[in-house]
Design a protein around this nucleic acid. Structure first.
Lengths: 337, 337
DNA sequence: GTGAAAGCGCTAACAC
DNA sequence: GTGTTAGCGCTTTCAC
């Protein structure tokens, strides 16, 4: 769509052949120094840049990565994307993004759209719907077509590809233990991710911590939020039905913020009456009142690793041993615990 | 990098020529029905898809849009991006993103990287540094190279291109008036965007509203935040130096959230003692306690319009009358005003 | 009804 | 030291 100068035009203006110009631009030993100088001067004058599409067609590599994420409004995904972009950019890769909006159909569409030679490989995190339906034929198809893929955070264990995850179970286990060790007697778990493996793993971590703690008196109580509108009523109900709770672990900060609102309205003190630990080190948690303690998933690192692994695989496509990188999480204690 | 099937392979397997296969796939009237059926069956079997790079090279259009944004962690930009992606996707366009991190050098780099035939045009919002330095040679260069460009939100008035903006001055003016009409007597303005035109416009709107309101007793007080670390001290100082303030308008919700924290710590009541209006309808404001009143910039609409305008221009590149679309904003009154 | 050939912009093997 | 040619995958004009 642009009026980029081509080798052809340079060649014509200099009365040289296209290949001479091409070689001159590469400082080929075959070419006369004068010619090289002339060619490069003109190329500079016209700001010549080799056409990327032509290069791709010739080399059969696009130097671009397809990134498919469920929801760009989620801070975690934005930050992973930032990590991917940094690393990709550093290695001369561009990134094309596609938003699945947590829908299987959009995820399939994204994969199909981009597997027409637009990208060299994919980085993706599975849509909620896809994981709820345990669908993964589309992933297999893409891999069979020869596209390397790196999954992060929400991954499909049965798919043979590289992965970058956190240890969700351990993160939740540790956070729960932290609360137990700080003398919390009744700890509730609120999850908006029960359809996802990561949600299930976090719940396991929470439940195990309770089970293994001597003298913990209650059964685990897990509240499952199926969609956005349920946050408020579920939390109101929780505070009424369990007046004796003194700590809550949530799988996302939206839940934690709703909880904060509910607790403030009831006039309870945080963290004295109720402690809270959220998930994701975002603005929401840093700027809440009181500032929310959270599990930091290290999103930047996840993105960076995902990109690095994909680029590495692109270099040596033969190797078949897929790796799963586990990125360390960190409990960030602020004012709510 | 993949093993996509090509026309050549299909042709070979069917003992046909490449051009026949190509035509058959397009249901050309020239081709025998049987042949068409055979070709299409095989294409389907192998999941044939025309190679995008080849198509681009041939047609001299990539069907992709380059999007350069300052900061993906900012909810506003994420949401604009979502709007762009939706609209682009609907029209068969892909999007390549590049993050400038508010740096001029990265912005220039992004433009240079993508102007090698990778994209058909650009959508961008200017980096803080770029606007602070009033630099815009790189924009002119890109436009001269024939790339259409749509700027949104942070735009350069002197650049001839399509633009999508909001009326920042009016938005701030209206919000300030709202506070005045609700009997607020001393209204402060906090800005983290004073280096940007949009920041200046908002401040003008705020100041004008005060000036034009009969009986307003104070001079405008504008607090300028130069970087993240200044929020907390500046706000602490504000609350001490002006114990009589009863309303604040901010240019971003981070400032508003810090203010909320400061006010809570002082034990003041919101909105009784102090009213607050922030900027951007994000999670932060919805989930704050109390829920923050804000000016909603309609980010989705901005993104959608930007993409639509670019795609439109790509269709008819000749027309030279550039448009500036002003998207309507809305004051969302919640619990802090 | 089918195929050959040119050309998009580039690289690289191979002449001269 | 420079130029010709082929080919990446595709579309399209023109021959047969």
């Amino acid at each position: 769509m642009s009026n980029q100068v081509t080798l052809k035009q340079l060649a014509k203006e200099l009365n040289l052949s296209i290949s001479t110009v091409s070689k001159a631009l590469k400082n080929s030993y075959e070419i006369n120094e004068n010619t090289i100088a002339k060619v490069q001067a003109l190329a500079k004058k016209y700001n010549y840049r080799p056409n990327r599409m032509a290069l791709s067609l010739k080399s059969n590599q696009t130097k671009t990565i397809g990134v498919i994420i469920p929801n760009i409004l989620n801070y975690f995904f934005s930050k992973v994307l930032m990590g991917i972009e940094n690393e990709a950019s550093k290695n001369g890769y561009q990134i094309i993004i596609y938003l699945s909006n947590n829908k299987l159909s959009k995820e399939v569409e994204g994969l199909e759209m981009l597997s027409d030679g637009s990208v060299d490989g994919f980085i993706l995190s599975i849509a909620k719907e896809t994981q709820a339906m345990a669908e993964n034929e589309h992933f297999k198809a893409i891999i069979k077509e020869g596209y390397p893929m790196v999954m992060f955070d929400r991954v499909a264990p049965e798919i043979a590809c590289d992965k970058v995850i956190i240890d969700d179970e351990k993160a939740a286990y540790d956070a729960t233990n932290y609360l137990l060790n700080h003398r919390r007697k009744k700890i509730i778990y609120i999850s908006s991710l029960s359809a996802l493996d990561i949600g299930k793993n976090r719940e396991t971590g929470y439940a195990n911590a309770l089970k293994q703690y001597k003298n913990y008196k209650h059964k685990p109580v897990a509240i499952h939020i199926k969609n956005k509108t349920e946050y408020k009523p579920a939390i109101t109900r929780l505070l009424e039905q369990h007046p004796d709770i003194d700590a809550v672990l949530t799988t996302d900060n939206v839940a934690a913020m709703h909880l904060l609102q509910g607790i403030h309205k009831k006039g309870l003190k945080i963290p004295k009456d109720i402690a809270i630990i959220g998930f994701s080190d975002d603005n929401l948690s840093r700027l809440a009142y009181p500032a929310l303690s959270v599990i930091d998933q290290n999103a930047l690192e996840i993105g960076k690793n995902a990109a690095a692994m994909l680029i590495e695989r692109l270099k040596s496509k033969n190797s078949k041993d897929f790796k799963t990188k586990v990125v360390a999480t960190k409990l960030v204690v602020r004012e709510t615990s």
